[in-house]
């Protein structure tokens, strides 16, 4: 058991060194829908349930490519980047909050700069956001995100410092504005 624990620690340290898990494809995504660029009627969408992989997030400038899960419990955060279910689905015209671990998929988030593009392919449309802010915020300070926003925007965060272990007081936050992607028509 001790030997197994040692191996687990070494494995974790290796992830820290190498930047984490490798992710190869979008095959995890459920019931992919193509062809909707400006709007998408909700009646044709397959909405994710808690725990579903429903997209892929990419930030080319930081060499980030990660599966996107709906829900953000500990188990899901080990598998990819995760959307908090207290924010609406991407394309709903309000704030989307996504998080990921600082020693796996978002290990290089610190390389993101204002103006960089964030792409999120979902099972109902492909979205592009442009980074507008990169800040370090306190985890218990809610002023850096606005769940009541009336415009589509993305807030992406991970624990800071990047090499910290365990619970940290700060979050590395990337705020991005909507550029393109289908708006969900909930009444159609």
């Amino acid at each position: 058991m001790a030997f197994g624990s040692i191996l687990s620690t070494v494995d974790g340290m290796w992830d820290l060194i190498t930047g984490g898990k490798e992710y190869q494809s979008q095959e995890l995504m459920l019931n992919r829908l193509d062809g909707y660029t400006d709007t998408v009627p909700s009646s044709v969408m397959t909405f994710p349930k808690y725990g579903d992989c429903y997209g892929e997030l990419r930030i080319e400038s930081a060499d980030i490519k990660a599966p996107l899960y709906y829900g953000d419990n500990d188990k899901l955060l080990k598998k990819g980047v995760c959307q908090y279910i207290g924010t609406m689905f991407i394309g709903s015209g309000t704030t989307v909050l996504i998080s990921g671990h600082n020693n796996t998929y978002l290990h290089t988030l610190g390389e993101v700069e204002v103006g960089d593009k964030i792409e999120i392919d979902t099972n109902y449309g492909n979205y592009v956001y442009e980074v507008g802010s990169v800040t370090i915020e306190k985890a218990n300070d809610s002023s850096w995100y606005n769940l009541d926003a009336d415009h589509e925007n993305l807030e992406l965060y991970t624990c800071y410092p990047f090499d910290a272990l365990g619970i940290t007081r700060y979050r590395f936050c990337v705020g991005a504005k909507y550029v393109s992607g289908p708006k969900i028509l909930y009444n159609e």
Binding site: M1, A2, S5, I6, S8, T9, G12, D15, L16, D72, L77, C82, Y84, G86, L97, S99, G100, H101, N102, N103, L106, A139, N140, S142, Y145, L147, Y157, T158, C159, A164, L165, G166, I167, T168, R171
Partner: peptide, 16 residues
């Protein structure tokens, strides 16, 4: 709303 997204500290492994 804001989750803990830092590397997990494996106390068991550290002790071992």
């Amino acid at each position: 709303i804001i989750k803990t997204t830092g590397a997990e500290f494996n106390y068991t492994a550290l002790i071992a």
